[in-house]
């Protein structure tokens, strides 16, 4: 099961849960699982960036997620 962590500003969408474990083969499946758990969570997650095992994705899609993966949702970064 991958460890999935949410930042403070997303906790309103997860009933206050900061960290959960989810089994998912890739990012798309992870979103499906999270949406099933917290209907409506997909939209704010789609606006977030995600780090999978340290690699930051502004727009993840089919990135594989391993059984020991750490998945952190975070704010998107812009720049000058």
């Amino acid at each position: 099961m991958a460890k999935v962590v949410f930042p403070d500003h997303l906790l309103v969408h997860t009933g206050g849960e900061r960290e959960i474990e989810v089994a998912a083969a890739n990012y798309r499946d992870l979103l499906v699982a999270l949406e099933e758990r917290w209907p409506g969570v997909r939209e704010p997650l789609n606006k977030a960036a995600v780090a999978i095992d340290g690699q930051i994705y502004q727009d993840a899609f089919l990135e594989p997620i391993g059984a020991d993966s750490e998945v952190f949702f975070m704010s998107r970064i812009e720049g000058g």
Binding site: V5, P7, A51, D53, G54, F72
Partner: peptide, 12 residues
């Protein structure tokens, strides 16, 4: 490398 950044993930 491996430090957990304050914004979440571990640094590569």
């Amino acid at each position: 490398e491996g430090t957990q950044a304050p914004y979440g993930p571990k640094f590569p």
